[in-house]
Amino acid sequence: MKTKDTVFSIGIDRYLTDVSNGYCFVTRFFKELFKPPFHIREVINQCYEVGLKSLALISLTGFIVGIVFTKQSRPSLEGFGAASWLPSLIGIAIVKALGPLVTALICAGKVGSSIGAELGSMKVTEQIDAMEVSAINPYKYLVVTRVAATTITIPILALYCSFIGLLGSYLNVHSEEATSVISFYQNAFKTITFLDIFSAVIKSIVFGFTIGIIGCYKGYNATQGTRGVGMAANQAVVLAMFLVFLEEIVIVQVANWFRFF
């Protein structure tokens, strides 16, 4: 029978092994990324899978976030007699934070789980081994292409989500105050600097990379048959979401340091 100490040490051992394997998995990505062959067609296929198939969900969510955030903010600003600041507030909130974050969370759920389940299923049914014995580098073909696709596509989706969010917000503002589109967007972007957009894009690139690499790592290392596939998909979502929030805090802090200089 295992004692508490043994269970604890096995847990620590597994955790450290996982961290070490994860580190090797990430460093291998950068080594393989610049080595030929470059599976450009597969990257485009994956961009289509990640991008176009998430578009409807991102549109709907972005639009709703824009409307809800505007509706919730209005009473507070009106209380201070600052309702005219609403477009600026919404602009800052959506472009800097909500757009990238909402996109990342949706993609972590939709794309991360799908990558984790797909690769996990390929792993447990020996399809990855079959690729390897056919002299095809499965890491390069499956992992590099998917991570490249999420890293490219998620920033584009985040900008699109921000745009749709602002559109939702405009429709709400317009229904209350009959503001014109030009006036709304001018006000919304008045307080947004290039650094804000730049940091939002950089943040989305980091989120995209995280979602892709975590999904691939969990799927690629799946074990224990169908149960393992489910676990890989689940862990890919949970870990990716956790890391997205963690990265959000770090990047906001770093961006604020730059602002002071």
Binding site: E126, Q127, A130, V133
Partner: peptide
């Protein structure tokens, strides 16, 4: 590995590709 053929117990066919694509894949990649 290109000189060795490996037939898996589970067949390990790529389940998202049809028979033609399963066979053409190792050829086009190699």
């Amino acid at each position: 590995r290109r000189r060795i053929g490996f037939s898996f117990q589970s067949s390990a066919l790529y389940d998202s590709r049809n028979v033609y694509e399963n066979l053409a894949f190792p050829l086009t990649m190699n």
